[in-house]
Computed example of a mutant assay.
Amino acid sequence: MKFDLNKWYLQKINGEIIYKYSGSVTSDKITESLSLIEDGLDKNLVKGKIRKKVYNVVVECIQNLYHYADIPPLSAEVDIVPKYGLIVLSKDQSFFRISTGNFFKTERLSRIEESIKMVNSLSDEDIVVVYRDILVRDNPNSGGSGLGFLDMVRKTGNKLEYYIYPQDEKYSFLSLDVYIS
């Protein structure tokens, strides 16, 4: 049975929607999205540390989509565009939720799942140690590869929730939820 993207999307648009987008994740779309997200945070009177956390984690999530999303398979009922991704930023009483989703070639998912599981298994102290080790080890021009998931957990203090849904024999859909309170 193939993944039902519309059903997934309907589940993610709970609470007060600050921003939602589905389509090709391009550098122009990132710039536009971040501006709209800032406007949405202003409209919802989000201030101070929580605003900074939400914004920084949204940036990490969008960067993940930009760098790692694949073209969706023909079996997906979406526009077949490069770097197809979805993002929903919502507020629900005492927390914000950033939900992202994108298609991956199934052969690539095990590495991503291992990264998420590793980050989720770390204590707060271990996250800081691993984060610093990566910063020291990486070339300053590499953009801090490997820091995205660590940074999300470090900034939010919450584990990453993820699900992998098979789409067809070659593709799967990765759903990632990050909670900020």
Rank of each mutant, 00 (worst) to 15 (best):
I87V: 14
I80S: 10
E38M: 12
P72Q: 08
M118P: 00
F96Q: 03
Y131E: 05
K52R: 15
L10M: 14
V58C: 15
N120Q: 03
F149H: 03
G85I: 05
I87Q: 11
K12T: 05
L34N: 07
R132N: 11
Y163A: 07
K155N: 05
V25G: 08
I17M: 11
R137L: 01
K2I: 06
V54I: 14
G146Y: 07
S110P: 05
I37R: 03
K53V: 08
E169P: 08
E77S: 11
V130D: 02
K29I: 05
S27F: 02
I71W: 10
S27W: 01
E113G: 01
S94A: 14
D39S: 09
N120W: 08
K47T: 13
M152K: 00
R51Q: 02
K105V: 03
S181K: 14
K2D: 08
L45I: 10
D39A: 08
D92M: 14
S145F: 10
V136Y: 12
R51M: 02
S75R: 12
M1S: 15
I87G: 12
L174C: 04
E113W: 01
D138Q: 13
E125N: 12
D133V: 05
S142C: 01
P72M: 06
S22Q: 13
K20D: 13
L160E: 06
S121A: 11
K49C: 05
V46Y: 09
Q93R: 15
L174F: 10
E161Q: 15
Y68L: 11
N14I: 07
E125D: 14
N6R: 08
G85C: 12
